[in-house]
Design a protein around this nucleic acid. Structure first.
Lengths: 245, 245
DNA sequence: TGTGCTATGTTCGCTATCGTACATATAAAT
DNA sequence: ATTTATATGTACGATAGCGAACATAGCACA
């Protein structure tokens, strides 16, 4: 019983938008739309996935949770991709939790349908594989950034990643939430946010951060951001950056 | 003009060994064997790949190099997998360098042949995709480990990863090499190695480290090691750990 | 209007790791 | 055996980030 989905809505997802008319129509006929609240869990670590999700306005974090409860984000998915690459990679599940980082909508497709589409071996398969490589690059760069860069630099990167996947400049997220994503203390985020605000790159208010100097953020950020964006561009024909296309 | 490869040699690679007789024969007919010296570069970042490499006794590091020359390993490939997932993912190249971390041999296959095999959509495709997910898990856990764990814990993990992919207990590698992989100072590795030696887990000699208490290392290591091993087990039917299968 | 919850701000001492500098030991080369 | 290059050991101050504790400010709602 798929809820009828507005095609214009589904097209907000770049992966789906990259499909040709016929492919899109076929894929779209198997989709339904859903909206998600902040903090909602799409998949738990190790849990079999019923659906793959193609965010349109929501942003989903892929989060690893340690035995002691510490957390660290390994990647982020918005309207650039899909949550559920493990479905066509054969694993059915992953070691990370998929959790809503910014509320909004996604269209979804049943596991069985996605696998069937993938097996067709056409353009959709190609896009899914290319997206998987882009995601792998993003995860790799997260590893590098975690090793080599300061909290302030990582916060820049994280703000830009979020900004790229939203339509607004206002990011609804607490320091505490971000600290869980970056795997650092909440106080560390407070400090870093103050520094960025002092440089007039963002407004730092209770519960929200507002990007007021996007160019400035891009100057302050480490190279990790642009490396990933270039790779998205190369692999998928368009980068995710609002600035660099 | 493929150099004839001893099938028993190629079977040292677990991915190839998992193929059925017919599949293996067909794939193997397109392979040639090569041996590699320490530090040799299989692919440079961004460079188009002519071949995919299936290590049999060599260990290959996937290394990201920053603009300022700093380095950090994002993953390691031995006889558990292949170097070159980007070939069938569609990207042809990656943002990391593939460099020989422990000398030995690999069998290789031309890009064109690998793509053709992948397109057949059979067991080999399935294995390649499952391996890709396992690699993605390894990279993810590298990100987590970089964020949350001490140099000593990470050195344990790194020694176990290497030990799993070698036949000997003697690991030929300098502190300097390891520090480049882990993205830390050489002195940090010296300190950590001394601590592990003081606990009688390894022998720490010039140019080599020898594992003398594997169980002890497994106790000292962070959970990251076992998480990845479990996932290899689940996805590929066998873990990489010498101990945990 | 007030009450209470949540988010943010601030401080302090602690530790891991860094950057730098230099000393020593081992292996390889002559 | 001597020399040389390389690997390892050690020390010291600097710093980023941690853990804990507590203060304040913004917001929701009785």
């Amino acid at each position: 019983m798929p809820i009828t989905t507005d095609p214009n809505d589904a097209q907000k997802n770049y992966l789906l938008a990259a499909l040709s008319g016929d492919d899109f129509a076929r894929v779209h006929s198997k989709m339904e739309s859903r909206s998600f609240k902040l903090g909602e869990v799409l998949y738990e670590s190790g849990e079999k996935m019923d659906h793959a999700y193609f965010p349109t306005t929501a942003i989903i974090s892929l989060l690893y949770i340690m035995e002691n409860g510490a957390t660290a984000e390994i990647g982020v998915v918005g309207n650039d991709g899909l949550v559920g690459v493990a479905l066509f990679m054969g694993g059915e599940t992953t070691t990370s939790r998929a959790i809503v980082q910014s509320e909004g909508a996604a269209v979804r497709m049943k596991t069985k349908d996605l696998k069937a589409e993938f097996a067709l071996g056409g353009r959709f398969q190609e896009l899914l594989l290319r997206y998987s490589q882009a995601l792998m690059t993003q995860i790799s760069q997260t590893a590098v950034c975690n090793r080599l860069h300061s909290i302030e630099q990582q916060l820049c990167r994280w703000l830009l990643l979020s900004h790229d996947r939203l339509e607004s400049d206002k990011l609804v997220m607490t320091h505490d939430l971000i600290s869980n994503m970056l795997g650092v203390r909440r106080e560390g985020i407070t400090l870093a946010a103050q520094k960025l605000a002092a440089k007039n790159l963002i407004l730092n208010n209770r519960g929200t951060m507002t990007v007021i100097d996007r160019k400035g953020l891009e100057i302050a950020v480490c190279e990790c951001y642009q490396v990933v964006n270039n790779e998205y561009n190369r692999l998928l024909g368009r980068g995710m950056s609002r600035t660099f296309g």
